[in-house]
Design a protein around this nucleic acid. Structure first.
Lengths: 341, 341
DNA sequence: ATGAAAGCGCTAACAA
DNA sequence: TTGTTAGCGCTTTCAT
């Protein structure tokens, strides 16, 4: 059960392996008849050239970077991807994307995969798994593999490009306070995301910096997906006395906000008449809808571009560069899902 | 300007390259002191092990497949990606995703990239570029690289997993005819997509199989994105006499439908009171919104699973398998964006 | 137009 | 615990 190699093909076609190589690489130095014989042999033996062996001598080095995200179906990440691709492509780099879907295990495999496949560097949205297994990131460091994180991680020095979540959350809260709201609930993000904690933190701090009082039941652990927003919202209002309704809901992201609004519609609770809703990210789907969402705009595209920029700078530097830490500001975009009380 | 290799590190650390290799691979056979010396040398020389060279001898073969899509921001493709990942991961394959963003050139580079990086096979949503440059797909074939297409292409024998677009379009049209509509417009997809043509074809055939008359101005070339739907819709109705309004719009996909509905809202044209709207795909964002969209459900997840299934079967087969052609049926889901006339 | 032979940078036996 | 050596499967000169 040996794998068939270029030698097998050469033998079968009655030529040397140099010739077979020429055929594979579509060189024009090989006679049509020889070429056909080789092609025939390749086909009959079902021969597949091994990619890594091929590249060993190649001068035409291929450049590529990896992007490791957490949720392939979240427009926040695909928005970043677009920014990364745009910049990287303009610099002659191809980009391949992989998603851990929140699994730390997959993230580790995937990041190793990148290094093994000779990807030149990676941009990673890390999964924070309870006891923070960041072993693999240290692995990348010892082998000098360039990478940029899309979320800060405690305990590791690295390049980071992220949003200033605390600040942006405080901006949203200030807006709400200023417009008469104080009964506010936060539908928070998944436990494995640093963004989630930073946003909760911002929510929290906004209260302590105001004259309003914070209660822990103002945080509803939800997740990052539409369905979770929908579901948790239904649960939250189930059997709740309308007197105890919040006047505003701030969501982890737009997906959750969309789910919340859908649930609210089903419960026949008016937005923004009865409850104001604020999202996070400003994904394309919330811009012009029937109830355009007030949201905190994450500069996804810029996030991607900046991360790619730093990564490629590191890839092309012959020596270790000092770590960069970019915090982009998010901006509140007021649309129709919020109102003054 | 030579690249630093394992030999450089070995020399600098005063050990043999075998030892350096052991350090890189975290073997426990190397003394702590030696290890540190090597690590130090690696760091100082900013040494990065070449991935392909490493894998040449490795027994721990890594299995991965590639997914080449056309629009990273389209939930239709990310839905497929999820299906692919689910199946592939369960079989021990990692999946990496790349997007051509409608560029034939990028698609070619990317598909070559996959073969060079020793990805075991690929699932490809091909870009049809006018004169159909499918040269690279033939390239894959001569080198026996397994792949599955997500759209049929004329002139190439290959595995295909797709939706029966003609049939599903006819289903939607029948629904519309049965509910009293005949002034129907199709906001069609991008020129580089086979899906777009098949859907136009289905639209067309639905008319010829009915007693209603088709006019070529019923087709509005639009695209695959939200913004295009929004824009084209605005243009379409600009200066048009309400007498000449269609009673229904069938869109290439849900993204376009969403854009169309947003434009309609802006124009203060009621959906479904004045105009019924039908989408295509049933992406998550159209399910529970304020005007839940009537749409043709594409089984994205199943599309992904089936494609991955076929691909992996081909990868694991020692010889060429006969080509498979899977046509999945789409189903009309009636929600609130359509009404009986 | 083709063959022979010398690597590519690494890992994996095996010796020492 | 470390060094030595033989490949891995291919591409690329350089002859012929």
């Amino acid at each position: 059960m040996k794998k068939t190699t270029i030698d097998d093909v050469a033998a079968k076609a009655g030529v040397s392996k140099g010739t077979v190589s020429a055929v594979i690489n579509e060189k024009n130095t090989v006679a049509a008849m020889t070429r056909n014989a080789v092609l025939k042999a390749m086909n009959e033996l079902h021969y597949q050239p091994r990619g890594n062996a091929r590249m060993s001598k190649k001068s035409t080095a291929e450049y590529s970077i990896g992007l490791l995200i957490r949720e392939i179906e979240n427009p926040f990440y695909t928005g970043i991807a677009l920014g990364v691709m745009e910049f990287a492509n303009s610099k002659g780099y191809l980009v391949t994307i992989a998603s851990s879907e929140g699994s730390h295990d997959l993230e580790e495999k995937l990041s190793q995969h990148f290094t093994r496949k000779n990807v030149k560097g990676a941009i990673i949205a890390p999964v924070l798994d309870g006891t923070a297994e960041i072993h693999h990131l240290f692995g990348l460091k010892t082998t000098n593999f360039p990478f940029v994180l899309l979320e800060r991680i405690k305990g590791i020095q690295a390049n980071v490009v992220s949003i200033d979540n605390i600040k942006s959350m405080k901006t949203a809260m200030k807006y709400l306070f200023d417009h008469g709201h104080s009964k506010i609930v936060h539908f928070a993000g998944p436990k494995h995301a640093a963004h989630a904690f930073e946003r909760i933190d911002g929510f929290n701090r906004a209260f302590s910096e105001s004259r309003h009082v914070y209660r822990s039941d103002m945080i509803v652990m939800t997740g990052a997906h539409y369905d979770q927003g929908f579901q948790k919202c239904l649960e939250y209002f189930d059997g709740r006395n309308p007197e105890n309704y919040p006047t505003a809901i701030v969501c982890y992201n737009d997906l959750v906000a969309l789910g919340v609004m859908a649930a609210l519609a089903q419960l026949e609770i008016g937005v923004p008449d009865q409850i104001s809703v604020i999202g996070n990210d400003n994904i394309p789907f919330v811009r012009n809808g029937p109830i355009p969402l007030t949201t905190i705009e994450a500069p996804m595209h810029e996030l991607g571009v900046r991360a790619a920029e730093i990564l490629i700078r590191n890839i092309e530097s012959p020596k270790q560069l000092p770590f960069e830490n970019v915090l982009l500001e998010a901006q509140l975009i007021v649309r129709k899902s919020t109102r003054t009380l």
